[in-house]
Structures are given as structure tokens and as C-alpha cells.
């Protein structure tokens, strides 16, 4: 790995329960303009564009091609799309920059969960033979994981409630967040998870710009250098996994170099309170690490963008010189099925 690559800009929408007045491209476009304006780049200056989204969320076939209108994709641009969280689009863009074929990349992701019922939509990503025919919704699967953690003595309901309240309290400083301040823990949604343990359902988008080497220093006063990034996946069947641990997260973190030196900040993509418990353990994070100062996915969880936002939030703290070395994590699938870890650093102050 000979090229240094950095996140040089990050933008996100205000995340809201519904954006029915906007089409997907109408929701996305202001974020694209924001992130380009931060660097002074125009679409024509971007060497590679990669996006993450899922047509299932809003029930719109090929919606990502319509979203490209917001980029200004004519004359033809070098472009790709993943039907995954935008964190994986960033991974593809990082790879592209590593090859030397591109010096700058625009990565964006968006999700409109409001047109459908996301708990049911997400059942369609499950094993189609043995699991999907039972329609186990996303909260139910997270609740099975939470109960396994409680049974194993790794957490209890008061500790989960504390994760929820800390996240929403931190989100008061995040004007983009959907749930901020004092949010009641509420009733059981699927026991042992209460409404407060679950992420808000909403619409939103995010974008980052990556740049390599000196180009990054021209575009950003303190680039967030990607020191390592890796993603790993668990076995397919839930009943094969130890739901109280996340070996894939640990392995991705190891490959990304996260354990070589301590980080001061971690942005974890833990949509459910219980998943933060799993991730803290897998990553060996102690109380010296600032976890989810943005409020995390418990404060805003736009599907397909929430993982990219973790990388963006971690990078933005480095840009603002509030962090020197940060870990960003993104997840996909039920019960932390697939996990990506990036390690970001700023130049010495």
C-alpha cells in the first residue's frame, strides 16, 4: 500500500421520519452540493463516483440510476454502485484510489425508509430457504441477540437503557440527528428490547469525498487519513453464530490496524443498544475512548447511509482537530452479520 488516501469532506442531510415531499434525488442533491462546495470541486473534477443504496427500501426499481441525476453524470463519468451501506461504496472507492486510476472520489449513500415498513423489508435480505419464509423482522432478530447477551451476563436492561440515553444526550450537539435529548425508554417492542433500545426509522443521505496524497492536503487543512480499512462477515446462519460476540468485527479491526495503537474516538454503527455492547467487547474499547459523540445510529439511522455517516463523523472530528486517531465501524445484515472497520488519523498537531 503506497498511496495515502484521506476523507477530505463529509456532509449529511437532517435525518427525518419522512421526506415524502422529496424524491430520492431531490433529497440527495443538497448533500452532494455541500460536500463538493467544501472542497471547491465540481463534478467534472471527480475521478470516480460510488454510491450505496437499496431499491427495496422505497420499492423503486433502479432508483440509484435516477439518483445519479443529482451528480450530473453527463458527459459520462466513471461510476459504480453497491446495493450495500455507503461504507462499502467508500471501500470500493478507496480501492480504486489505491490503484492510482483516480485521485479523487465522491462517495454517497441514501435511504428512504418512510415509504415502506423497514422491519418487514429487511426480512427479504435473510436466508430465503429457512428464515425469510418466517418473516422475522429486524427488531426480533436484534432482540434474540440482546437476550443472549443478558443470559450470558454481558449486559442487563439498565445498562442498555444507559447506552440509549447517553446516545440521545450526545446527539443534542448534532443538529442532523433525528432523536435528541431525553427520550423515554418506552415499552417493549420485542422483549427484551424497548422502543428506546431501537434506532429511529427515517430518511436521509450522506456523502464524503476521498482524495489521495498531496491532492488531499490541497483540499482539506487536516485530512483524515485512512490508515487501514477492512470488512469481514459472519457465518450465514444465525444459529451457527455466537451472537454475544463479533469475531468478524475483531478481525476487520485487526486487519485495519486498529489494535496497533489506541484510538481516542470510535464511531460504532450499532443500531440497537445491545449491539454497542457486542462491539465494545469485540474491539476492546475502554472508558478512555469517546464512543459515538454524534449520537450514533440510535440518534439517526438512515438505512444504507448510517455506516458511511460513522466514517464521515469520525473524519469530521479529525478535520476539526477534536480527534487524532479514530475508529469507524459500519455494519450490515441481521445481528451484526457483516462488519467494516476503518482507522483514521490526522497529521500531528
Amino acid at each position: 500500500m503506497t498511496r495515502e488516501i484521506a476523507v477530505v469532506a463529509f456532509a449529511q442531510t437532517d435525518h427525518r421520519r419522512t421526506t415524502e415531499e422529496l424524491s430520492e434525488v431531490e433529497m440527495l442533491m443538497p448533500v452532494l452540493h455541500d460536500v463538493l462546495d467544501q472542497t471547491g470541486l465540481k463534478t467534472a473534477d471527480i475521478d470516480f463516483t460510488c454510491s450505496g443504496s437499496s431499491d427495496y427500501l422505497a420499492g423503486r426499481a433502479f432508483s440509484f440510476t435516477l439518483a445519479l441525476d443529482g451528480v450530473g453524470a453527463w458527459p459520462p463519468i466513471s461510476e459504480s454502485h453497491v446495493e450495500m451501506d455507503g461504507a462499502w461504496a467508500l471501500y470500493e472507492a478507496w480501492t480504486k484510489l489505491l490503484t492510482g486510476d483516480a485521485d479523487t472520489a465522491l462517495v454517497y449513500a441514501y435511504g428512504k425508509s418512510s415509504p415502506g415498513s423497514v422491519r418487514d423489508v429487511l426480512t427479504r435480505q435473510l436466508d430465503p430457504y429457512y428464515v425469510a419464509p418466517l418473516w422475522p423482522d429486524s427488531v426480533a432478530l436484534a432482540a434474540l441477540q440482546a437476550q443472549a447477551l443478558i443470559d450470558a451476563g454481558h449486559t442487563d436492561e439498565p445498562e442498555l437503557a444507559a447506552v440509549a440515553s447517553r446516545s440521545r444526550a450526545d446527539a443534542t450537539a448534532n443538529s442532523h440527528a433525528q432523536l435528541r435529548g431525553s427520550i423515554p425508554q418506552g415499552d417493549y417492542l420485542v422483549r427484551p428490547l424497548r422502543t428506546g433500545d431501537c434506532p429511529p426509522i427515517g430518511d436521509g443521505a450522506a456523502a464524503v469525498i476521498l482524495a489521495a496524497g498531496e491532492r488531499a492536503r490541497e483540499l482539506c487543512t487536516r485530512p483524515a487519513w485512512i490508515r487501514g480499512i477492512d470488512h469481514r462477515i459472519e457465518a450465514h446462519s444465525l444459529g451457527v453464530r455466537d451472537l454475544t460476540d463479533s469475531p468478524s468485527t475483531r478481525l476487520a479491526a485487526e486487519k485495519a490496524g486498529a489494535f496497533e495503537r489506541p484510538v481516542d474516538t470510535a464511531e460504532l454503527h450499532a443500531p440497537f443498544t445491545s449491539q454497542e455492547v457486542v462491539l465494545r467487547k469485540a474491539l476492546g474499547l475502554d472508558d478512555t475512548v469517546r464512543v459515538n459523540p454524534s449520537g450514533g445510529a440510535l440518534a439517526a439511522n438512515p438505512m444504507m447511509a448510517a455506516g458511511l455517516i460513522r466514517i464521515g463523523e469520525a473524519a469530521a472530528r479529525i478535520h476539526r482537530a477534536e480527534s487524532d486517531r479514530a475508529l469507524a465501524h459500519a455494519t450490515s445484515g441481521p445481528c451484526l452479520q457483516q462488519n467494516l472497520v476503518a482507522v483514521l488519523e490526522g497529521d500531528p498537531r
Binding site: D120, L134, P136, D137, L144, Q147, D151, Y188, V190, L243
Partner: peptide, 26 residues
């Protein structure tokens, strides 16, 4: 049962239409 979760409000398509527990069974 190796873990469980109580579902008081079954959703369309799920195995039972009365409240039930999701379970992993060895």
C-alpha cells in the same frame, strides 16, 4: 431454547398470529 425474544404483536407472514416467542432451538 438457546435464546428467545417475546413478540407481543405478530406481523404479517410470521408463524403465529397470537403473541409468541421467537426462539433459537438446538
Amino acid at each position: 431454547v438457546t435464546t428467545w425474544a417475546w413478540n407481543h404483536a405478530p406481523r404479517r407472514g410470521q408463524p403465529l398470529d397470537t403473541p409468541f416467542a421467537w426462539v433459537l432451538v438446538r
